[in-house]
Amino acid sequence: MKSIFTREHRMADLVLSDYNLLPIINRFGIRLGFRDKTVEQICKERNVNSEFFLAIINTYINPDYLPDSGLINVPVNSIVDYLQQTHRYYIEYTVPEIERLLSLLLKSSNTQNLHLIEKFYLDYKVELIEHIQNEESQVFPYVLNLVNDKFRKVNYSIHSFEREHTDLDEKLSDLRNLIIKYLEPTYNDNFCNDFLLALQRFEDDLKDHARIEDKILVPVVAKIEEELNG
């Protein structure tokens, strides 16, 4: 298990430990230029709940890390906001970037297998966007309604939003496997490597996103439902 970060750690050290944390930090509106400030100081300045911030960072670094039940106190709005920022990052940056790399790769090698891989990716993208839209239009509004209007009668539960994330990151891993094992070697090495690395980063991020929904959002919302119904 890698180290767990606390409020007293310097933000700069946190970033230095793993650059993959940068896009995650950005989702909180936190940007570089930390000097020697601690996590607590920066979070205060940007009006970020440091407990939630650390839970997200630590879950990312250690997939097995489970935030303790104290997290129940994190405002649901912050969790939803973070998840929405993540979606925006996927749609505005990750997906176009993967496509840019894929089109470079396609230009370097015009084989049938590569076109099949493109097809697989494009179908996957449709599915991904449908999934994101479903969360944005169904799941998040339900959750926000629940916390903002506690007197509403609750007829269904967060558990009914069975996620399809597993399926989504499974397909990314299939994509990687197909490329690594079955591509004819007529492509440009550097383009292909960049494409694979981008896929890998995306897969990791998606897995993390799914963990946050399962381990943070769902339990917190389930507890609110319980209080309302009980």
Partner: peptide, 15 residues
Amino acid sequence: LGIKSTSGLTIYAIM
């Protein structure tokens, strides 16, 4: 094969 999804298996079968 290390391929789990139906669509992944389909692509493999064509390849």
